[in-house]
Amino acid sequence: MKTYRIGLIGLGGMAQAHIRWLEEAGERFRLVAVSDVNPLALSATGDKHRISEAKRYADFGQLVADPDVDAVVAVTPNNVHAAIVRACLEAGKPFMAEKPFTRVFEEAVPLLALYERQPVPALIGFSYRYTPAFRYARELLRNGRIGAVRSFSGQYLQGWGAAQYDCPFVWRFDKAITGTGTLGDLGSHMIDLARFLIGEFEELSAQMQTIVPERPDPLTGEMVRIEVDDFVSFQARMAGGAMGVFQASRNAVGSGNQHEISIYGDCGTIHASTLDPDHLVLIREDEEGQLSRSTLAVPNRCKVTQYADFLAALDGLPTDGMPGALDGYRNQEVLEAIVRASETRSAVSLPIGV
């Protein structure tokens, strides 16, 4: 079977996790080229993984154009997502790229048009589609285990940005790089999970808030004004009529990485969370008409990895539920609608225009 030669763009902390996942996937993947604007990171990663000097690129465009690279994995800040995706599409190179799809919605529109003209196997890094409990929840919903879904609530909470931790001004707080703050970072995952489990967004209203207004520059110590959100909440009506309530925060003290959803149907409730990824809670009436709360172990068939799906796409056998380029675009569209709804203090209908 074919071994796919991978070029990796972006060599920060998450890149090391991707390298490990590539290695865990076995002989079907081989890392052959790397790219980063930081020469020290380029040298360290290249040396550690025995990448030849000729395959260490400061310019990601050269990596994408390299004929020895069969597919690209991009793990970079948001401001270069669009340029990398465009380069891959123009070169006809399959890719796996981090979420969100782009920094802002305006960048996503021409990319979708280009993708529709020149499609390639593509996976956008909505990694929580691969949380076993969420995949099992999708199976139970499709099997009608709780009947028609009427409402649901989702939240994604982290605590590292809370005021007491004195987190400095890093790129995730820089609007020029990220576009939005908590919304794009955590909210994009909530949006994708809702689309994965429930369906498309039809209308929403929203509020965004900056909780910590200034943070110290790690180099100068001077305070920098924060222009992105620390907290976002929104409520939505989905295309099938279900109502959803969402919140995301990086200021939730005590929450490490708490992404969860509760789904309420006509004859039961499902609760799934990253805090217990191998189990979910199912509430239904038993045969005697009494409410029964069961903790169900996730079956092995729901334990699928992101790289297994990427490999299937490269082999020409894309799987159901793999987050592709259109999912990235639709997610960006919802992000834009949330920003508009917060700024105008009004409901916004989907789909939206530029």
Rank of each mutant, 00 (worst) to 15 (best):
V64K: 02
V32C: 09
S342L: 08
G324Q: 02
N300P: 00
D327K: 12
A176M: 11
L123E: 02
S292T: 08
D229R: 09
N257F: 15
I124V: 09
T3M: 10
E23H: 10
D320W: 01
A82W: 04
Q16A: 10
F196C: 02
P94S: 05
E139F: 14
Y307T: 05
H18A: 00
A17I: 12
R56N: 03
M208P: 03
G7K: 05
M14K: 13
L296Y: 13
L22W: 01
A347K: 10
E24R: 15
V80L: 04
L280G: 04
D174C: 06
A65T: 08
R301V: 03
A337D: 01
R345K: 14
P100K: 02
R330M: 09
R195Y: 11
D286G: 11
S127G: 15
Y307P: 02
F234D: 01
V69W: 09
G321N: 01
Y57A: 11
A83H: 00
N300V: 14
F134N: 02
G159S: 13
G13F: 12
G61N: 06
D185A: 15
Q16T: 11
L311S: 14
N300I: 10
T45R: 03
M190P: 00
R345V: 04
A308M: 07
N143H: 09
G10H: 10
Y136V: 03
P213C: 07
H279K: 13
